[in-house]
Design a protein around this nucleic acid. Structure first.
Lengths: 220, 220
DNA sequence: CACTGTGAATACCTTCACAGCA
DNA sequence: TGCTGTGAAGGTATTCACAGTG
């Protein structure tokens, strides 16, 4: 029985995907010194229905007070724990093209507790460059980053041709979570989790929904 | 009866979200001069099960040949039509920070037929800058872009504080599809579609899945 | 009394199992 | 025979309706 099992009840995936949104809304409330919030208010702030919010929170436990609402600090802390954000999750970004450089310079990571500990590239001509104040390192540094700095999450920002190789390098070094921005399907062994975010895919989905309503100027 | 209704049968959202992946795989096959493909092969290339692929394709119509498979060109063309990618979808990027600049320089948009026709920013100090060869324009240019160039999709790459305002400007100018990279919930009138992609959210989801398996060094 | 927490109902998505066809 | 297309079954996610409680 591992220590982690205490925290980890069975939370549905769809629910997990919404928890970060709740946490963001709670953080904003806390910044405005709001101590208590109803499911209705929090749901609105997070862009979901209050029923769904309550159902989601019920998977974490019973942290609300009937007739009153939720304590903002308390709930934020419970969600933080559920998501596993009490430990830190050092991140490395692989691929220093446009997107990689932008991600390297992006503040949002650090703000939410994800420390970018290394920037890497497979191209020796790029290795050694300075990006956002850091020196770009070669892929062979990966194993040391895992062992010495606890590197846990790899962000792939390479062109799609190099994505699988970058992923293999990360996995071989011991990284078990990958956020992939390349438009490619990555294959990984069991136990490694990949999430792919593809900009073109998103635009294509928007195009589909857009056509529904965009065309009817031709109604004659 | 609008012209668009011909194309648009009722395709489930989950299915629509996978079509771009199939299209990408088909495009790769076509580049390698492969003319025909089975559901099994295509499914593998797209990272889904063959049953799911066939079910998804069945929503578009019957374009396979039993005992043989699918004609690559034909199927690509059917998906292209279903997604509404036969018309073009001019894109504007709002917010010329790090992410906006990276998106402006990103090739992937054009490759898949999304023409970036304008870069904008609400900050007068940024307006006039050159980014990726284009001059950054002020927000007040939006209505003209919609009318004169058919601007259809707005990409929001502003800080989260400015996202709702950017979105309102886009919507007011007549844009009905928004891809939002700011970590914020955007409210829009009916008929406008927003998709939000948030990097921190993705990392937090990875953290959740990672903790499941990361901790057990403490097994005693 | 207001608001949370939850079983039951519904809607949606995926997988199974196999009928149908080149 | 081999592979597609699909009704039916099984799961998962969301919504409803209301019981429970500070």
């Amino acid at each position: 029985m591992s220590a982690a099992a205490t925290t980890r009840r069975d939370i549905p995936d769809a629910s997990v995907a919404r928890l970060p949104g709740y946490l963001r809304a709670l953080t904003a409330l806390a910044r405005n010194d709001i101590a208590s919030v109803s499911s209705e208010e929090l749901a609105t702030a997070a862009g979901v229905s209050s029923t769904m919010l309550r159902k989601d929170l019920s998977h974490l436990g019973s942290y609300g007070v009937r007739g009153v609402g939720y304590d903002v600090e308390r709930l934020a802390s419970e969600i933080t724990t559920a998501l596993g954000l009490t430990q830190d999750w050092p991140v490395a970004i692989v691929g220093m093209g446009n997107l990689g450089r932008a991600l390297a310079a992006y503040r949002g990571f650090a703000e939410r507790g994800f420390r970018v500990i290394a920037l890497l590239d497979g191209d020796p001509r790029v290795v050694g460059d300075r990006v956002a104040g850091d020196v770009v390192r070669p892929m062979r540094d990966l194993p040391d980053l895992v062992v010495d700095h606890g590197l846990a999450i790899g962000v792939i920002a390479t062109p799609s041709a190099g994505a699988q190789e970058a992923c293999d390098d990360l996995v071989e070094a011991g990284v078990r979570s990958v956020l992939n921005f390349a438009p490619a399907v990555l294959s990984v062994p069991d136990g490694v989790v990949v999430r792919t975010v593809d900009l073109s895919t998103e635009l294509q989905i928007l195009a589909f929904h857009g056509q529904r309503v965009a065309a009817p100027e031709v109604v004659a």
